[in-house]
Simulated assay, not measured.
Amino acid sequence: MSFQAYIDNIHQKTGKTPEDFKQLATEKGFIVDGELNKSVKATEITNWLKNDFELGHGHAMAIYATFKGKTS
């Protein structure tokens, strides 16, 4: 599955875009001043995405990758 297919599937399932998730992550303190909070581990973020949005591991990692700047 391509990266874009992951993003499309996430949007279809949750109604949220990567920017929506970035905003939510900022509200939770995972992102500060547009950058990942260095004190937060990837597992904390992926667990949040799995628990709150019922994403699988691969889909949660795709959103995490967008937080790190991946766009395609």
Rank of each mutant, 00 (worst) to 15 (best):
I10A: 01
I10L: 00
I10S: 02
H11Y: 10
Q12Y: 10
Q12R: 12
K13G: 05
K13I: 02
T14M: 05
T14R: 03
G15P: 04
G15I: 11
G15W: 11
G15E: 09
K16N: 11
K16A: 01
T17L: 09
T17D: 02
P18K: 00
P18V: 00
P18M: 03
P18I: 03
D20R: 08
D20S: 10
D20Y: 00
D20M: 00
F21G: 00
F21M: 00
K22Y: 12
Q23C: 06
Q23V: 13
Q23L: 14
L24S: 07
L24H: 07
L24Q: 14
L24M: 15
A25G: 12
T26L: 01
E27V: 15
E27A: 15
E27P: 06
E27T: 15
K28Y: 08
G29W: 13
G29A: 12
F30T: 04
I31F: 03
V32P: 00
V32G: 04
V32C: 03
D33W: 10
D33I: 11
G34W: 04
E35N: 09
E35Y: 03
E35V: 00
E35A: 04
L36I: 09
L36T: 03
L36P: 09
L36V: 06
N37E: 15
N37V: 15
N37P: 11
K38Q: 09
K38G: 01
S39K: 12
S39R: 07
S39C: 02
S39V: 13
S39M: 05
S39G: 10
V40T: 09
K41Q: 11
K41P: 07
T43I: 13
